[in-house]
Design a protein around this nucleic acid. Structure first.
Lengths: 369, 369
DNA sequence: ACAACTACTGGGAGCGCTCCCACAGTTGAC
DNA sequence: GTCAACTGTGGGAGCGCTCCCAGTAGTTGT
């Protein structure tokens, strides 16, 4: 009681040493219990566990990290450039997934917003100095050097989404192609004959995938050679205004359009505006389907049918993948090294080394179609 | 080059010791330079700075935290219960503010989602064990014991929003009363005569404030004794459906309602639905104003006039306040201890000890009013 | 019986830093 | 000339942990 320095940063909780003393064991044994090592006698384990409970012991992260040489920390890196993305549920949901997957792990989640080159380089240096054990990169642009910087530095990283079909960096993505496909099939199934699409910017891989899904669905349905009518494809830019203008163009090219698949909900909102201006009713005259299942979709009039990505699950999967990539943690049994075990062609398509994962998307039916 | 152990957690960056050696000074001096202590000769400072640059030295956080006894970390705590909130821009914007304010600081941001009692207690223990230097609490409910737990443990904490008028825990809030007031004044200024309101749940302080602002504005305008007509006040619950039903009730009570101030955008969206069902046009028959400036507001038809809170700035302010509350950091000059310096009654109302801050709100005019 | 294991255990070393004490070197007052 | 009061400086101690190496029992084999 008489020890403490006068003031300063209040004394922290009990130490491992104290726990060990109380349990009547050595520091080493206490440490082993805390870390779940199997080579501890049940007696010692029980004693330590009791002591931990009584003292309310919480391991000191910094000390642990310092001693173990690992940072015990994952970084979630978000480029801030487009705050549009930040506002969408996308980020929040990724975060929720990540956070919930981490809850059991008791690793820390370090959040980093990259707002310019300076902060990016700073982070790259920070990561290279092994101040984090792994990095989750959210919505990286095609020209962002960060993934490669991290790879060269040997820091494990996982992307949300791919930058191209043959993305080399480990990633978790959702199935944009199939998502678009089911959306268009849904429209066709409702008897629509002239299904148009408003695409995203072609330099974004996800946008290309959604276009491909659209084409695929039409090709399968029409069976006629030549595939879909190219005049029914209008390019947008994932903004509302872009969606509006694209819709106007479509109406101009072919007034008989009776359905539109938009590569994002926001563009669908824009398209809806254009349709209203043109006096077309949704869904009577023109059925509308979006992509993302964002807040906009639920609040549109009429509520928008859309394609949902399992974003939260993507966040979880990213963490799991990252942990598998981190040295030391060797995830589940880890059978599939040289085995090449026959993969069941399930819904989740992961390649052999579990470093590419594409999760299924889902159609949310509302009254716009 | 020949050093490193075969594998393992890759050697991390250069250490202070190496920097010191390279600069030809002692470890202590190097440390002093890194930490900006003034008691270093210019010569030594220059040498160390050069060495840092050459070696690309990045201080090891864990080591620093361990040695200094501080965690070098702030926790942002978010109750997950209502994932509605999580989806709103609110959280994202707070986060952006916090993050940008922290960018210079190089403290870590630790993100914690509280999903149940277990995780809350775990966090409380964690914080009590001084594993964080301070806590930012986002949207705490009135009955959440966390603020008090932290206070008793002596962990500095700052709330976003108050739980009551005499909130004792340091907080940053936005001016809900004045926000509501300007919204209603705006409606009155547009010539509306029967301005109704849809309130939030009365057990939420922010909802009560918005109602008070509504009353205040009407009282000032009507000048007639008795103040606003109580029949024009309908209670909602911050949900869309609640807003819709409240609007129906209002129309029933008084069909001549020509304006509605809704205590949230989402409820305004519900009200808009009800108005459409009732064949009322917005804004011709009924003008609508919301609160929050959420995504819903921008995408409503017509786009919703609403009250914006400076959420990002609130996040920044929370960090600043928290840092002032942390021992060791004594923020800016800190003049106002016993001085009682005359406060300019500016827009930002901070009390003497800088532990309560209420930021101004702003009306965003769109075509719904 | 003794060696050769295996199953646990205690505690030293050391992670990279900050804190702080001791010790120059310099100045100024007496 | 002495003594104090500085300003810089180096480096020991130690933060709370994990790693790992000896060590002690207990078990089996020959």
């Amino acid at each position: 009681m008489a020890a403490g320095r006068a003031e300063g940063t209040g004394r922290s909780g009990p130490t491992l040493e104290q726990v060990a003393a109380r349990a009547g064991v050595g520091r080493g044994t206490a440490s082993r219990v805390i870390n779940g090592s199997p080579r501890v006698s049940p007696r010692a384990r029980a004693a330590v566990e009791a002591a931990v409970a009584e003292l309310g012991y919480v391991p000191h992260r910094a000390a642990r990290a310092l001693a173990a040489g690992s940072a015990d920390t994952l970084a979630l890196v978000v480029p801030e450039q487009e705050n549009r993305l930040f506002a969408e549920p996308y980020f929040s949901e990724i975060l929720r997934g990540v956070s919930s997957e981490l809850a059991d792990t008791d690793m820390q989640l370090l959040l980093t917003l990259i707002r310019d080159e300076r902060s990016r380089d700073r982070f790259a240096r920070y990561a290279a100095a092994r101040r984090v054990d792994g990095v989750l990169l959210v919505s990286v642009h095609g020209d962002d050097p960060l993934p490669e910087l991290l790879r060269d530095a040997g820091v494990p990283a996982v992307l949300s989404g791919r930058r191209s079909a043959d993305e080399r960096v480990p990633h978790v993505d959702s199935d944009n192609v199939v998502g678009a496909q089911i959306a268009v099939e849904h429209l066709l199934g409702r008897g629509r004959r002239k299904v148009a699409t408003i695409t995203g910017p072609p330099d974004m891989y996800a946008a290309r995938c959604r276009l491909e899904g659209y084409r695929e669905a039409l090709r399968a349905a029409t069976r006629t050679e030549g595939g879909p009518d190219e005049r029914l494809i209008a390019q947008g830019d994932f903004t509302e205004e872009g969606g509006r203008r694209a819709m106007l163009r479509l109406l101009e090219r072919d007034p008989w359009v009776d359905a539109v698949f938009c590569a994002s909900d926001v563009m669908a909102a824009g398209a809806r505006l254009a349709l209203r201006e043109a006096g077309r009713k949704v869904p009577e005259d023109v059925a509308l389907v979006g992509f993302d299942d964002s807040a906009v979709a639920r609040h549109m009039d009429p509520p928008l049918t859309t394609v949902r990505q399992p974003i939260e699950e993507m966040g979880r999967a990213m963490v799991r993948m990252l942990r598998r990539l981190m040295p030391g943690e060797d995830g589940p049994p880890d059978g599939a090294r040289a085995k090449g075990r026959a993969k069941g062609g399930g819904a989740d398509a992961a390649d052999e080394d579990g470093t590419r994962l594409v999760l299924p998307t889902e159609l949310i039916r509302r009254s716009s179609s």
